[in-house]
Simulated assay, not measured.
Amino acid sequence: MRAVQITEFGGPEVMRLVDLPDPVAGDGQVLVEVDRAGVNYGDTHNVENSYLAPAKLPLIPGGEVIGRTAEGRRVIALIDSGGYASKVVAAPERLFDVPEDISSGDALALICQGTTAWHILKTSARIQPGESVVVHAAAGGVGSLAVQLAKAFGAGTVIATASTEDKRKLALDLGADVAVDGAPEGLAERLREANGGKRIDVVLEMVGGPVFDDSLSVLAPFGRIVAYGSAGRVQPTPVLPAKLMRGSQSIVGFWLIDCLRNPGALIQEPFDQMVELVRAGTLRPQIGGEYPMSASRTAHEDLRARRTVGKLVLDPAL
């Protein structure tokens, strides 16, 4: 089979297209012929071995694919690694059925970015009707869906941040009430101004460093900041419990891997509900690029350089 493999940790330059023996499904495994592989920001951490779970060499990156089983069942498979390949094996409990009328790109956007956006809003932030919400990186895979879901869940003012005018326009087109520059300098002031001078109820944060610090500084009493990434690769200032106590504020972490402890309830059910929102036109996944698998290095370079929007996918046939 064709696959992208790394034999040393580093940046996109360590990724190589290779031919490998086909995987063989063992007991309790299912072989999936891959139609498209999803690219996630976490993959860039995985390649350099800086992710939450340590990686081992040699490594085929990628944690999600869509394809078909030998019986013709159309599924998404969530795997620990091995997704950048034309074939994968997966545990049956990590296979999720995909309707035929949903495109491969849309399905991949919903299964990881969509369920992440769903849970950081509903499960972690416990969003309430009328609350103000800041969505950082609002043109990205999670952010572009979180803007739309926040509105669908009854949020009041949705404030999007993004690095370019085009990305801010996209966030507004997707339903954000206000879109501001996400650069750290002066961010706290821009966020409060965007919310009419008031503090913010919920912040969805995946940058880290000073963006996290400024986001925490504008939280309202009983406000929640949900940390679900560290794209800036810089840690925020440590937070003392007394600081949170003074405003009855919360910092909540989220990692989609934890949802695999109960995949039916925590992944398949939100996925199915989002499929219905897509069919109704309420939710529009953004496919920011479909790359040949031979150009996976370029996909990572574009993602790390913030040149992309929405969900990126790889075609293993090219």
Score class of each variant (00 low, 15 high):
114 G>A: 07
274 M>L: 10
255 W>I: 14
38 G>R: 02
117 A>Q: 08
248 S>M: 15
105 G>H: 08
239 V>D: 09
30 V>T: 10
70 A>Q: 10
203 V>A: 12
222 F>R: 14
220 A>R: 13
109 A>Q: 07
52 L>H: 07
105 G>E: 09
242 A>Y: 15
141 G>K: 07
303 L>K: 04
254 F>I: 05
204 L>T: 04
74 R>M: 02
137 A>S: 15
300 H>K: 02
219 L>G: 08
110 L>D: 04
308 T>I: 11
258 D>L: 15
49 N>D: 09
222 F>D: 11
21 P>A: 01
307 R>H: 15
304 R>T: 05
197 G>Y: 13
270 P>S: 10
37 A>C: 14
94 R>I: 06
5 Q>H: 04
123 T>K: 12
103 S>E: 11
288 G>C: 13
317 A>W: 08
278 V>F: 05
165 E>I: 03
74 R>T: 03
140 G>P: 09
235 Q>W: 08
246 R>C: 13
113 Q>E: 09
142 V>S: 12
61 P>K: 03
195 N>R: 10
305 A>T: 11
265 A>W: 10
290 E>T: 15
295 A>P: 02
246 R>Y: 14
250 S>L: 15
139 A>P: 11
3 A>P: 00
306 R>V: 05
65 V>W: 04
102 I>A: 04
235 Q>R: 13
181 D>G: 09
123 T>I: 08
209 G>T: 03
45 H>E: 03
94 R>E: 14
244 L>V: 11
23 P>M: 01
35 D>P: 01
18 V>C: 01
17 L>A: 03
68 R>Y: 12
39 V>D: 00
134 V>F: 07
257 I>D: 10
292 P>W: 01
190 R>C: 10
175 G>M: 04
194 A>L: 12
158 V>C: 05
234 V>G: 06
195 N>L: 12
299 A>D: 02
260 L>W: 08
101 D>M: 12
102 I>S: 04
280 A>Q: 10
225 I>K: 06
174 L>M: 03
204 L>V: 05
24 V>S: 01
2 R>G: 00
275 V>I: 15
131 E>A: 09
98 V>Y: 10
253 G>C: 10
81 S>R: 12
89 V>C: 14
275 V>C: 05
10 G>S: 05
103 S>L: 08
167 K>D: 00
191 L>Y: 13
91 A>Q: 15
118 W>H: 14
64 E>K: 04
269 E>N: 11
136 H>P: 10
204 L>C: 08
37 A>L: 04
39 V>K: 00
135 V>P: 12
170 L>R: 11
165 E>N: 07
140 G>W: 13
61 P>I: 03
159 I>Y: 02
20 L>P: 00
22 D>G: 02
102 I>W: 07
